[in-house]
Computed example of a mutant assay.
Amino acid sequence: MKGLRSTRGSNAVDRLKLRSGNAGYTMSVTGDGLFFLSEKPGGPPLCAPLELAEFAAFVNSLGPQTPKRVSKLDVAFEKQLVKKKPS
């Protein structure tokens, strides 16, 4: 089960690397199973050691955010939801 936990955390760090263009971000795990992020290997931590859910939320909030993808069907559905004003 611990492997799945670290995979979720490392995926969040990989997405941050792609968004920010900084390939130096590293994730570390303490002996207690808490996670923290560094800008480079051996660098100072950017956050206090966090549980997995808080760590993933912290990492996802860093760097530039990617715009949410919207399909043609989503746009058409949104148009149908808008009420027409009476003439």
Rank of each mutant, 00 (worst) to 15 (best):
M1V: 13
M1G: 15
K2C: 13
G3F: 13
G3W: 15
R5C: 12
R5E: 13
S6E: 15
S6D: 12
S6M: 11
S6N: 14
T7D: 07
N11L: 15
N11P: 05
N11W: 10
V13I: 05
V13P: 03
D14T: 14
D14C: 04
D14S: 13
D14H: 10
L16K: 00
L16N: 04
K17S: 05
R19L: 03
R19Y: 00
S20L: 08
S20D: 12
G21L: 04
N22W: 15
N22S: 07
G24A: 00
G24Q: 02
G24D: 10
Y25F: 06
Y25T: 03
Y25G: 01
T26K: 08
T26E: 13
T30L: 01
T30F: 04
T30I: 06
G31V: 11
G31F: 07
D32T: 06
G33Y: 01
L34R: 03
F35M: 05
F35C: 07
F36E: 00
L37F: 02
L37H: 02
L37N: 01
S38P: 04
S38G: 04
S38L: 06
K40W: 10
P41M: 12
P41C: 12
P41T: 11
G42Y: 10
G42S: 06
G43Q: 05
G43L: 06
P44I: 13
P44N: 13
P45W: 05
P45V: 01
L46F: 00
C47H: 01
C47I: 02
A48V: 15
L50W: 00
L50A: 00
E51H: 07
E51P: 07
L52T: 05
L52D: 04
E54Q: 13
A56G: 10
F58S: 02
F58W: 03
V59D: 00
V59W: 01
V59P: 03
N60I: 01
N60W: 03
S61A: 15
P64L: 08
Q65V: 02
Q65I: 06
Q65H: 14
P67M: 09
P67L: 08
K68C: 11
K68G: 09
R69L: 14
V70N: 08
S71P: 02
K72Q: 12
K72V: 11
K72H: 14
K72D: 15
L73K: 14
L73M: 11
V75N: 08
V75H: 08
A76L: 15
A76S: 12
K79C: 11
L81Y: 06
L81E: 07
L81N: 11
K84S: 10
K85G: 06
P86E: 11
